[in-house]
Amino acid sequence: MKRLVLLLLCLCVPAVWATESSLPKIDIGKGGECVKDVQWMRKNHMHLLVHQRDETVLKGVREVKNSLKNCIECHASIKDDSVIAREDSFCVACHKYEAVKLDCFECHSGVRKSAWLKRNAK
């Protein structure tokens, strides 16, 4: 029994050490209260986005709340108004950590709309 506890302890220590030192450092932008609980979003944000994308493209329902633009509105960095510009940008930091390819932004703008409009004003 004592050995088992010791073994478990040995296994836990590196795990704790690992989480503390190598978790992604994320620039969450303005942040604030998300449309759902944070842990839920970490796991399920892609389902919300895919649902919203079909609603918008096929049916023209441009509901703001779950839209990619709304994600960007809160989570684009205060420094550069982008969710993809740097290694620690909101989307990039996690996707890099999880090694999941991020291809939304081959078509979509990763920039806060207000900032884009300001830059592209006549």
Partner: peptide, 16 residues
């Protein structure tokens, strides 16, 4: 060609 800095309301991208 790959595109950058699209209008946030008008997503457009290479290969489509």
């Amino acid at each position: 060609e790959p595109l950058q800095d699209q209008n946030p309301d008008v997503p457009r991208g290479k290969g489509t």
